[in-house]
Simulated assay, not measured.
Amino acid sequence: MDLQLPGTEGWTVLAGRNGSGKSSVLQVLTLALSRLAHLDRATGRVIRRYERDWPGELVHVDIKKLGNIPDGGGHKVLGRAAGRRNRTNAGYSYLHTAVDDHSRLAYSKIHADEKKETATAFWQRAHAFFAQAGIAVERVLTDNGSCYRSRDWRDALAAAGIVHKRTRPYRPQTNGKVERFNRTLLDEWAYPRPYRSETERREAFPPWLHSYNHHRGHTALKGKPPASRVPNLTGQYT
């Protein structure tokens, strides 16, 4: 549904009916329209934002599939036509990511697939990362991907006493913290500059992730980085 603000005559009519000035009507309608961003497009229901009370209470886990950059660069370097030709057989990368709900602290690694063995091994390393930071993980939230429905995944979480929760089907916003992280890494790491190879892009990932965790201000954290909520995070001030 497309909503449009009325013209000058419309403002006058609305203001007259409401007994208010045109500027007041504009403020009310602008605020109402901005709230559409908080609606679930599929149902029209309000998306309820939440934040867990302490680190480890809930960790969001997800996999982001990215097309690899061929040697010589893609369309940003070569132009669209040449970049498309050079793209053949470049393959894909899979970013496995775990984000703590309370602190937004992220652990993320690039892998060649999203198989159950890869996802499970990733989680075991992520769990160790959070433990080293002093975070005791209680629950993990994932989508319904096959790797997260595997016995390997189930057993790894059960052995650590971690509860596994799944998102509702076709509702990725339920896993919103890691989905938001994925959008940030696309904007700030994956696509902001014309890399000339996949190797070059991958080499830029660890420094970017360090900056995200230790230095980059987060609006949900009042402009502070995730490290501000994780006192035991190593390398916090480097």
Rank of each mutant, 00 (worst) to 15 (best):
M1C: 08
D2N: 05
L5V: 08
P6W: 14
T12Y: 07
T12A: 15
V13F: 13
A15I: 10
G16N: 14
G16D: 12
S20V: 10
S20I: 06
K22N: 11
S24E: 12
S24N: 08
V28H: 07
T30P: 00
A32Q: 09
L36G: 06
R41T: 10
T43Q: 02
V46N: 01
I47M: 15
I47R: 15
E51F: 00
R52I: 00
D53S: 14
G56K: 09
L58R: 00
H60G: 04
V61D: 00
I63S: 04
L66S: 03
L66C: 13
G67P: 00
N68C: 14
N68T: 05
P70V: 06
P70D: 09
G73L: 07
G74A: 13
K76P: 00
V77Y: 09
V77K: 13
G83W: 11
R85G: 07
N86G: 13
A90V: 04
S93R: 14
L95C: 05
H96T: 07
H96V: 06
T97N: 08
T97Q: 09
V99Q: 07
H102F: 14
L105Y: 06
L105S: 10
A106C: 11
A106E: 07
Y107T: 08
S108D: 04
D113I: 07
D113M: 05
D113K: 09
E114P: 00
E117M: 03
T120I: 02
A121Q: 13
Q124H: 11
R125G: 04
A126N: 05
H127P: 00
H127M: 03
F129W: 15
A133L: 11
A133Q: 12
G134L: 06
G134H: 08
I135K: 04
I135A: 04
I135Y: 03
I135S: 07
E138D: 13
T142F: 10
G145V: 11
G145C: 10
Y148I: 03
Y148V: 04
R149S: 12
S150L: 09
S150T: 08
R151K: 11
D152H: 12
D155H: 09
A156N: 03
A158S: 15
G161M: 06
V163H: 11
H164I: 09
P169N: 03
R171W: 07
T174G: 02
T174W: 03
G176L: 01
K177G: 02
V178F: 07
V178Y: 08
R180S: 15
N182V: 02
N182H: 15
R183C: 14
R183P: 01
L185W: 12
L186E: 15
E188C: 05
P192E: 00
P194E: 05
Y195N: 05
Y195I: 02
Y195R: 05
S197F: 07
S197K: 04
E198L: 06
R202I: 12
E203W: 11
E203L: 13
A204M: 02
P206F: 04
P206Q: 03
H210M: 01
R216G: 09
R216I: 08
H218P: 01
L221H: 12
K222T: 11
A227T: 03
S228W: 14
R229Y: 05
V230D: 07
P231R: 13
T234W: 10
G235H: 15
Y237S: 13
